[in-house]
Computed example of a mutant assay.
Amino acid sequence: MSDLSEHMIAPEADSLHNMRLLADIPLRLSVEVGNTSLRLAELLELAEGSVVELDRQASELLDILVNGTLVARGEVVTVNGRFGVRVVDVVGTETRMAGVERRL
Rank of each mutant, 00 (worst) to 15 (best):
residue 63 D to E: 12
residue 27 L to T: 07
residue 60 E to V: 02
residue 54 L to E: 05
residue 40 L to Y: 06
residue 45 E to W: 01
residue 33 V to Q: 08
residue 41 A to K: 15
residue 49 G to A: 09
residue 31 V to Y: 05
residue 26 P to M: 03
residue 50 S to H: 05
residue 32 E to P: 02
residue 57 Q to D: 14
residue 50 S to Y: 05
residue 33 V to G: 11
residue 31 V to C: 10
residue 29 L to E: 01
residue 32 E to F: 01
residue 46 L to W: 04
residue 31 V to I: 14
residue 48 E to N: 13
residue 49 G to N: 11
residue 56 R to W: 00
residue 55 D to V: 06
residue 54 L to D: 04
residue 59 S to G: 03
residue 62 L to F: 08
residue 43 L to F: 15
residue 65 L to S: 00
residue 57 Q to E: 14
residue 21 L to D: 11
residue 54 L to F: 08
residue 44 L to F: 10
residue 63 D to A: 14
residue 47 A to W: 03
residue 39 R to K: 13
residue 33 V to H: 02
residue 43 L to N: 06
residue 55 D to Q: 00
residue 28 R to D: 14
residue 57 Q to A: 14
residue 47 A to K: 15
residue 20 R to S: 11
residue 59 S to I: 10
residue 56 R to I: 04
residue 48 E to K: 13
residue 37 S to L: 10
residue 20 R to D: 10
residue 30 S to K: 06
residue 24 D to I: 05
residue 35 N to D: 10
residue 30 S to Y: 05
residue 61 L to W: 02
residue 22 L to C: 06
residue 33 V to C: 06
residue 25 I to G: 02
residue 25 I to Y: 03
residue 59 S to F: 07
residue 54 L to W: 03
residue 64 I to W: 00
residue 45 E to D: 15
residue 28 R to H: 11
residue 30 S to Q: 09
residue 38 L to G: 08
residue 53 E to F: 07
residue 51 V to N: 05
residue 22 L to F: 09
residue 24 D to P: 00
residue 35 N to W: 11
residue 40 L to V: 14
